[in-house]
């Protein structure tokens, strides 16, 4: 009995201490990590989505409220004069969350381009979603009335062979982006001006 209690107590204390330590480190590094993600992940993705903008989407980023969850929005003024926004949504892939930066043209309501930002997918299989442009380019230019599910599920997107889970994660994120955009469009447009 004594041994039993001992075991429970030690493990509990250890786990609690570990949790506390991790919370501290997480809190201390949060701002720094966000800066790094912005610099190394979102900036290249934004640059890929809006290769030529007349403004600086990173500097003009703003937050809007999506049902209590803050959402970071990057506005871009495209070279042909039309306005666009980019924001990130997440789908669940094979190795955790897959971040997808979705650029949407506000004037025509079409997708400009999508880019995978963060992922922990298997290198060489799921990671092709990021490294191989032919998958992500399926989304470019599609109207927002498109269903971005897999073709097998009645949508319009071809899955990458061997990486169905990752492909699904990307399409879930794209569908989510569509919903968020349709819901929040008035507010986004208001903020942009």
């Amino acid at each position: 009995m004594r041994e039993m209690i001992n075991m429970v107590v030690v493990l509990t204390v250890l786990t609690a201490l570990s949790g506390g330590l991790l919370a501290t480190v997480k809190a201390k590094t949060e701002v720094q990590i966000e800066n790094q993600v912005l610099k190394f992940q979102k900036a290249p993705a934004i640059k890929g989505i809006f290769p030529e903008t007349t403004n600086d989407p990173l500097a003009e980023r703003f937050m809007i409220d999506n049902e209590g969850v803050p959402l970071q929005v990057f506005p871009g003024k495209l070279s042909d004069g039309s306005k666009a926004v980019a924001f990130e949504t997440k789908g669940t892939g094979f190795g955790g969350a897959v971040g997808l930066m979705v650029g949407i043209n506000v004037d025509t309501d079409t997708i400009v381009e999508v880019r995978v930002t963060t992922h922990s997918e298997t290198p060489g299989i799921g990671s092709r979603a990021k490294d191989d442009p032919s998958f992500a380019s399926q989304f470019s230019g599609k109207g927002l009335d498109t269903n971005f599910s897999m073709k097998a599920d009645g949508g319009a997107v071809d899955a990458m062979s061997g990486a169905t889970v990752t492909s699904k994660a990307v399409s879930v994120a794209a569908n989510q982006a569509k919903e968020i955009y349709q819901k929040l469009k008035p507010e986004i447009v208001k903020q942009m001006n």
Binding site: L14, S18, L21, L22, V25, I33, Q36, F40
Partner: peptide
């Protein structure tokens, strides 16, 4: 538990300072 704690700390630190 102990190992996992330190691994997570390393992961956070690497994310914060050696992101590439």
């Amino acid at each position: 538990v102990i190992v996992a704690t330190f691994v997570t700390i390393v992961e956070l630190l690497m994310q914060a300072y050696t992101y590439e």
